[in-house]
Nucleic acid binder design. Structure first.
Lengths: 139, 139
DNA sequence: TATGATTAGGTAGATCCTAACTAACAGGTA
DNA sequence: TACCTGTTAGTTAGGATCTACCTAATCATA
């Protein structure tokens, strides 16, 4: 089984490298190769909580409101988010992600889709079915 | 094929999540859940260039020597590296990784090994062989 | 003297904070 | 209706801390 483990390691190492390439590709396409992991985390929270306000985001992330203002200012600057004043209450501002912001918030899934696109080009339908069948036993 | 792609996405999403768990597990075990990606990059360089000196590391990473001194000081503090004075030349100090430092420098591979360990427990030998055969066509 | 590393001192940017402020709303009162 | 008041949402000002870099000067060894 040890040799089998090694072979598995090899093919998965290659696969993970491909996904890494896809991630980097996405960051480059967005012109954001120096974004911090903290910023990506915030983008994810904003993406998950649609229509989130500054106060709510401060609550969720356990930060002060000025911290959120600052963070969103930076997102606006790098074109990942924009402000949208609420039509119901002039005091309230919703934080919305741009297409770029959404792309980065979901960079893992997007990279995975790209990786799988590459995979299916190399495999026929039976192989894909077999792959799914085997891997379902793992998860 | 669209449904097949979705199924592939599902199983791989789960697989990547497992690897993520393994990575976090390793960082936690090392007591280093707040290490920066920059620091990990430096650990990788130190790991790849065995017996590297301060001057050499400054050269490789295109940084000043004080930057390296500071970085290594931090690694020593978090028990990822230690200094070893050269027996041949009293001026020279080699940067060496501790076991913990090596674990973090290779966290991706180590997490992958853990993931594969989990996989082989769920699969028989034929399934592993089949998996390798199919995935080799991708890389 | 030249080299390898360290020390001292400093800058820039990210990520946090409190206190004070502005704008907008909501309710009561004249 | 018009005005006053208190509350709420977000911003501004100013500051602290940390990472990650730097130059210039220093120390130890060759």
């Amino acid at each position: 089984m040890a040799a089998r483990v090694d072979r598995l390691f090899e093919v998965f190492d290659r696969l993970f490298a491909i996904k890494e390439e896809c991630s980097s590709e996405i960051f480059c396409e967005c012109g954001l190769d120096d974004i911090t992991s903290r910023q990506i985390d915030y983008l994810k929270v904003i993406d998950e909580h649609r229509d989130v306000t500054f106060s709510r985001l401060a609550e969720i992330t356990k930060n002060s409101k000025p911290t959120i203002t600052e963070m969103v200012d930076r997102f606006v600057q790098i074109e990942c988010a924009y402000r949208q004043r609420s039509p119901d209450d002039g005091r309230v501002v919703h934080i919305r992600l741009t297409e770029k912001g959404q792309m980065i918030a979901n960079v893992e899934q997007n990279a995975l889709y790209r990786m799988i696109d590459r995979m299916v080009q190399m495999l026929d339908e039976d192989e894909v079915d077999l792959l799914v069948e085997i891997l379902r036993k793992v998860g």
